[in-house]
Write a protein that binds this DNA or RNA. Structure first.
Lengths: 106, 106
DNA sequence: TTGACATAACACCATTTGGTTCTATATAAT
DNA sequence: ATTATATAGAACCAAATGGTGTTATGTCAA
């Protein structure tokens, strides 16, 4: 009971540059916490915290494999971000729409 | 001298739901701080802080007009977000690429 | 079975964040 | 001139964030 409501959404998850770097790393190759950590100057504990945030946002998934935990990219939640962006695209993507916006704005 | 380096980028600016709501409001219509504030339950001062963050990220611009300050949407910096997203699209946007990713990942 | 390795789980800390209230200043309206 | 309006800015605060180090647990290899 008392379902733990997710604290981090996609928008918050990608706000941190370290977490964006983690996502990039995982887009190249699934890898263990130790491997991921080796790319950063911060402690392994700190990296794990970032992985937990990304997991809560649904952007990665970790699977136990022996004594290692292998993390995978789980890109689907980025669709929410794309949807959000698509709405705003009309305001700058092409000059016709941009002009339309500027005229109608006032 | 000692140029004040920007503290907030686009990724951080859109991480907060209130700020995303402000962007949406401004996409509909340019408006004063008072008008923007009227849509939220938080204090005007808090709204101004959010506007400052959005301004630092280049997503809005405020222009003094008499005793009012009118804020406009400035959507161009969202392109950076779109560019970032575009890279990850290959991993989920169509099933062929997704399969390609899953196979090559291992 | 013993030692090394990989992760998990704490407890702790400084800074940042998102909010508040109060005061000051500039402009508009009567 | 006086009053009301709109914004600016300071001081303050609690909670969240991003980091640390230490300890415990589970797994693999010699």
């Amino acid at each position: 009971m008392t379902e733990k409501l997710p604290k981090y959404d996609v928008f918050q998850a990608i706000a941190d540059p370290t977490r964006r770097d983690v996502l990039y790393l995982l887009s190249l190759q699934k890898q263990s916490i130790a491997e991921i950590s080796s790319h950063f100057d911060i402690s392994r504990t700190a990296v794990v915290k970032h992985l937990n945030v990304l997991t809560e946002a649904g952007l990665v998934r970790g699977e136990k494999n022996g004594r290692e935990k292998i993390y995978y990219l789980q890109p689907e939640p980025l669709q929410e971000l794309q949807d959000w962006l698509t709405y705003f695209e009309q305001f700058w993507h092409n000059k016709v729409n941009k002009l339309k916006y500027i005229v109608e704005r006032d």
